[in-house]
Computed example of a mutant assay.
Amino acid sequence: MLRPRRATAIEHDACLLVDGRELRYTLRRSTRRTLAMQVDARGLRVAVPLRCAAGEVEGFVRQHAQWAFARLAALAERQQRSAFAIVDGATFPLLGHPCRVRLGGGRGARWAPAADGHDELWLPAAAADHAALLQRALRGRALAWFGGRVAEYCHRLGVAAPPVRLSSARTRWGSCSLRSGIRLHWRLIHLPPALGDYVVAHEVAHLLEMNHSPRFWSVVESLYPDWRAARVRLRAAAAGLPLFLPGEDAGPINED
């Protein structure tokens, strides 16, 4: 006898009045065991267990409402920012230091040191899509840099270095899978090395603990003792990253 399949997830829009302000969100019920909240390009999303009582959901949303309002305001501000103007002499952050765009001859993008000690990225002036060339150059720089950092932290932990790939995830700076390896957001190449190293240490720690248990955070601390301060700074870092295309996501909010 065939039995009907049990629903695994149910989503619907919801709205709660908090201190006279409407807080709109998408409520997702699934087979998960805990309540969680996140803000991404789609807005506020609240995930709860299938049988979670309406009163418990409302209490959870109210408890975290101020956090949600702040994140939604930051998201709206990022989305209204104009795209970075790629002109000769414009600067963007590269590993926490200013990098200068230079437009000249040639067919492709190339990196070169400047007389003042900063890096320069040379792009062909006649290129049809400077933004695409710039992003491709940054991705190449990011893959080389973070491949080395993952190898270093794996060496410290005494584990084999897995494959490293780049991502453009909307909500996560990194992810780790025992099958496919570590993925790191390409925009980390903008940030100071200390912040990028925190994300690397976080993902490498998952090679031993595929969770966020106290044992996991103990591994992170052994690799990166100042992880708490780095975590706070990382969560605010996306607000200052350049946007190379109109409407582009500025960067993730969470580590993973």
Rank of each mutant, 00 (worst) to 15 (best):
R179M: 05
P98L: 05
P242Q: 05
V220T: 04
A137D: 12
D119F: 10
A114V: 00
C99P: 00
W67D: 05
H212Q: 03
T8M: 10
P246F: 09
P225A: 01
F60T: 03
A128M: 08
C52D: 03
R78I: 04
R24A: 14
A160M: 11
R62Q: 02
I86Q: 07
A127H: 12
M210R: 15
H12I: 07
S177I: 08
E221D: 11
P162E: 12
V150L: 06
A109L: 03
R32T: 04
R78H: 09
A236R: 12
F244V: 14
D13A: 15
A128S: 15
W217P: 02
T26N: 10
A53N: 08
L2D: 04
V48L: 10
R107N: 09
D197M: 02
W122K: 00
D129F: 02
G117A: 11
H190V: 01
E22W: 12
H206N: 11
R170G: 07
A83Q: 13
R136V: 01
D197P: 06
R215E: 14
E22G: 08
L94Q: 02
E152Y: 12
V39D: 08
E209K: 08
E22H: 15
A250K: 07
C176G: 09
L94C: 07
R42A: 15
G247M: 13
L50W: 06
A237T: 08
D116M: 13
H64S: 06
Y25L: 10
D19T: 02
P242E: 08
G106D: 10
H185K: 01
F60P: 05
S168G: 13
A7K: 02
L134T: 05
V199E: 00
V101R: 00
R71E: 14
L195W: 07
A239Y: 08
A74W: 02
G140T: 07
R45Q: 07
G196W: 05
L103M: 14
P124V: 03
V220S: 05
R42D: 14
Q66M: 04
A112E: 15
R235Q: 15
G20M: 02
P214S: 06
W186R: 06
L208Q: 02
Q135K: 14
V101L: 15
G43E: 13
E11H: 11
E152Q: 15
A115M: 06
A54M: 11
A144I: 13
W145C: 11
A239C: 03
Q63C: 03
G108F: 11
S82D: 10
D256Q: 09
P193Q: 14
D88W: 01
L138E: 10
G89T: 01
G240P: 08
P49I: 11
G251M: 07
R156I: 01
V57C: 12
H118Q: 09
R136Y: 01
E203I: 05
V204K: 08
A109H: 10
G43H: 03
D19N: 11
W67C: 04
V199Y: 01
A74L: 13
Y198N: 06
G196T: 07
H202Y: 05
V61R: 02
R172Y: 10
G240E: 14
V18L: 09
D116P: 04
H155T: 13
T91F: 00
A90G: 13
G55Q: 10
A161R: 10
